[in-house]
Design a protein around this nucleic acid. Structure first.
Lengths: 111, 111
DNA sequence: ACAATACATTGACACACATCGATGTTCAGG
DNA sequence: CCTGAACATCGATGTGTGTCAATGTATTGT
């Protein structure tokens, strides 16, 4: 879960191609679990829809409506899973979306 | 969770278009939660990759390596979420994939 | 140095959920 | 009918996780 592994998502195999093995299924499920939370989806969406392409964590707490530790926690999970990248500048943490990671997940869900 | 609602998945809006509201995020997250489980991913994959386009529940228990009640439980969740359709024939339950449902999810994850 | 700010980490807690055994229900065959 | 098979439902249980308050850590400004 907290593995921070480089994701393969059974590259280029679709769900209908042939039956998923347990290991591949666990890996895909882990990736999906990361996005299967409203707070994380909104964070990813906020960062991805930012005009400048990046967003400061300090600007995400209030609109998300959750505590600062909770936001920090979710952002870490998104970074560990590769959906966001983090850059620390001064005392601020800036996040950018990693569209290729999302595309990788999307392609793993091809029918 | 057990809502069996017709899914919209915020039709035609992408994650990066603009920031997801809490309600849309909950709906998308609920759909992702359904697939964020190895057992359900494998069941969906088994049915989708079946040569005949359908699969009997009786043939899914053993390859999945989980108990019959557990398999039945997961299949119900997939049906309720619209990823599978169920047809009862005699004493057997036959399942078919619903590719449009998966495509709906995939498009909601557009970057 | 000191205070304040931004963020991460820790500990605790409530709740959700995947799983199984046992039981209920429905249906086909004899 | 009655038995067996296929599937669903129920109850219980252990594990995972989203959340927050409190605290720790780093960095800026005075």
């Amino acid at each position: 879960m907290t593995t921070k592994v480089t994701p393969f998502e059974g590259c280029c195999g679709s769900l209908a191609a042939d039956a998923l093995g347990e290991a591949d299924a666990v890996e895909l499920a882990d990736a999906l679990k990361v996005l299967a939370d409203p707070a994380r989806l909104r964070l990813l969406s906020m960062v991805a829809s930012s005009a400048t392409g990046e967003a400061c964590a300090c600007d995400l707490v209030e609109p998300l409506g959750r505590s600062q530790p909770t936001v920090s926690h979710h952002l870490s999970i998104l970074v560990d899973a590769g959906f966001l990248s983090r850059e620390k500048r001064g005392k601020w943490a800036w996040y950018r979306a990693v569209p290729e990671r999302l595309e990788m997940l999307r392609s793993a869900l091809r029918a």
